[in-house]
Simulated scan of single mutants.
Amino acid sequence: MKVHLRKRRLRKSTKSNISYSLYLDIYYRKGKRKREFLGIYLEPQDTQTIRKEKLQLANNVKAKRMLELTHEEFGLPSKDRLKMNFVDYFKTQMDKKEGNTKMIWRNVYLYLEDYTDGHIPFSNVDKRWLEDFTEFLLTKVSIRSTYTYMTKIKCTLNEAVRDSIILTSPGNLLKPLKVPESSKDYLTIEEIQKIADTPFYNDEVKKAFLFSCFTGLRLCDLRKLKWTDIKETAYNGSGIKYTLTIQQNKTKNYTTVPLSETAYNLIKPKQNNDSLVFQLSKYHVSTQRVLNKLLEAAQISSKHITFHCARHSNAVMLLANGADLMTVKELLGHRDIKSTQIYAKVVNASKDKAVISLPTINL
């Protein structure tokens, strides 16, 4: 990689009155060439001192550009990139998200704007700043939400490392917040049966929720599920006739889920086209409002049930019926086994409760 300072004669020049435009001729290692005009001109009327100052200015720009290009070549951040606005960069990452995930990112963005007045350079986003922003969030939202919001900040910083804006992420220096373990609300098979038996005006939401109970699919994945994602399987003696394969919206990983008889009965007959299996609102709040009415009609009010609880219910049912943790992890598409182990604790608690409730006898 080389950078040369060159001059080009301007068209307005005459034989007795010659003017030049200064520019940088940049040669990259892979044969790419770029010209960068500096807007600095050598005029015939320039004194020797002025001409010397212009050339010095141009050489300063050349040296700066060489340093920046060297940083880029070796994956090091340049000073100009460190001046970039972290809030604007966070917004570019937010705009890539979809659905409920984007709503969470937007909440973080609004708090970030409030805390920084919309601007803070990357060079100022250090460990101390992150600790102060964490404390700010704790005055606004719960510790659990703060934990979630800070993961988005750390995710953005990790992306900035990949984009060679910063060398390392200061988020790695933070002590993780100790978040109290939350209980996972889920439905028992008896409660799921009550929902199935309840007549309801919105058959799409009802079927989609029950389908999630028996497949573990998230609402965002149900919205985009197409008939072409469901394939007939070759008979292998397991009794499974159909499986679905889908790229999870959250993790971007592909997961394959065998369909139980109940799951398939909820959507049969299978259509041979690429239309959507479920016609659901794109708004999470709207879908949850309909689900609340379904739960009310089924007289289930002792639990706080969201659409995501269908996924919890699926995990608990699988474990309670003998599935091992790794199998459940693969079916749910978890990245980390720790996410699956939470459900194992729920099942163990249910076992303890069942044993305690056994009748006693006189010995």
Results as ranks from 00 to 15, higher is better:
K15I: 03
K15P: 01
N17P: 09
L22G: 04
L22F: 01
L22A: 03
L24I: 06
D25F: 08
I26L: 06
Y27S: 12
Y28C: 05
R29Y: 08
R33A: 02
K34F: 04
R35W: 06
L38I: 07
P44L: 11
Q45V: 05
D46V: 00
Q48A: 11
E53S: 07
E53F: 03
L55H: 05
L55P: 10
Q56M: 12
L57A: 12
A58R: 06
K62D: 04
L67A: 12
P77G: 01
K79R: 06
N85K: 13
Y89S: 04
Y89H: 14
Q93I: 14
K96V: 10
K96M: 13
K97D: 09
K97V: 08
N100R: 11
T101Q: 15
R106M: 07
V108I: 07
Y111M: 03
E113K: 14
Y115D: 11
Y115T: 05
D117R: 03
F122W: 08
K127S: 12
L130W: 01
L138T: 13
L138F: 07
S145V: 05
Y149P: 00
M150R: 00
K154C: 02
T156W: 07
T156E: 07
T156I: 09
N158V: 07
E159C: 11
E159Y: 14
A160Q: 10
D163Y: 11
I165Y: 10
P170M: 02
P170A: 04
G171P: 06
E181S: 11
D185K: 00
Y186P: 00
T188Q: 04
Q193H: 12
K194G: 07
I195Y: 01
D197K: 13
T198G: 12
P199R: 08
P199S: 13
N202S: 09
E204F: 12
K206M: 08
K207V: 08
L210K: 00
S212W: 00
T215G: 06
C220T: 14
L225M: 08
K226N: 11
K226W: 03
T228E: 14
D229Y: 13
D229V: 09
G237V: 10
G239M: 09
L244N: 01
L244S: 01
T245K: 15
I246N: 07
N249Q: 15
K250C: 02
K252Q: 14
K252S: 14
T256M: 03
L259S: 10
L266I: 15
Q271R: 11
N272M: 12
D274T: 10
L276Q: 10
L280H: 02
V290G: 04
S301V: 05
S302G: 15
K303R: 03
T306W: 04
T306V: 06
H308G: 01
C309L: 02
R311I: 06
H312Y: 12
A315C: 11
L325R: 11
M326G: 09
K329T: 09
D336W: 07
D336M: 00
Q341L: 11
A344N: 08
A344E: 03
N348T: 03
A349D: 15
I361D: 02
L363M: 12
